[in-house]
Amino acid sequence: MHMADALLSPAVGATFWAGTLGTIGYCARKLKENMDEKMVPLMGVLGAFIFAAQMINFTIPGTGSSGHLGGGMILAVILGPYAGFIVMASVLTIQAFFFADGGLLALGCNIWNLGIYPCFIAYPLIFKPLAGSGASPKRITIASLISGVVALQLGAFSVVIETLLSGRSELPFGTFVLMMQPVHLGIGIVEGFVTAGVINFVRASRPEILESASSARPLSGGISTGRVFVGLLIAAVLTGGALSWFASSNPDGLEWSIAKVFGKPELPEKETGIATALKSVQKRTAFLPDYDFKKHEGAGEGNRGTSWPAVQPGTSVSGIVGSALVLAAVLLIGLIIRALRRKSV
């Protein structure tokens, strides 16, 4: 599931972008220190491989529905966590541009959800210990299955958290979790099977490829997974801290500060109780009789008590008329430019 711009608040989007950018920078530094130059084309072409493979649908047994590859696990196993993460991030970036999957603000979240968990949690903490160094297909299958499931569960859970923190959806936490996690259990199992299948296929037909890829990659035991984990833990705590700070002290975080900068008098948007929600709806919703208040901020003070939902017909109509006019004007501008361009060509 790709997170979408429209469900995000700027604060949440920016926080996850910060985490993602930090990780990209960290991986880039790690790779620069000790990477075989052979990896440069290999990473690029494998990214294109994941991209192409994702476009192939296959039927999931027992359900009749179709699924496709995620790819994070395969990349982590073959390229190691650092290069794997960079490649996954680039695949998601291209998708955000060319397929508009989610959007550009949500890209930070999507790289986080689909890149960090497979590369820095599932691979080092689950896949590696379970698969061991031996080449037993059975162990690889079990390791891929469990890490696929864990990575996707974490990813799905992050989607829930990101959506709730942004406060654009009405879904309560419990319902949302119950909706997301089971679906992604299935997706995770499929991902695990496909990952295991591809790795075992390659191991059976050309074992030297996996070996040469793993010898060219930087993380061949030199860096302890413990350090990576601690780093991530710190990042998580910092992110969580920043998020909760945004969410609690600044209602709607960044947009609160933007409003401040822009000087638009905005009321706290955090809807908790029905009462505050109603109040904010009354104050902010464009179609509502608030227009008069804004215009005569001082004089209209007494009207605030107007019982809800008594709509003042005049102002409400002015909102609709305004909307219609704005849309018509926008459309007209477009048509005029088009006409002018046609003429000049």
Binding site: D5, G167, R168, I258, G322, G334
Partner: peptide, 27 residues
């Protein structure tokens, strides 16, 4: 994008002028 998503949950009218951007780019 950041400005558009910075509008609160119940905003509709405030978003309409932003259609000017895609329309300008399209044309």
């Amino acid at each position: 994008i950041v400005t558009v998503v910075s509008f609160p949950k119940y905003e509709i009218a405030g978003l309409l002028p932003f259609f000017l951007f895609p329309v300008l780019l399209f044309s």
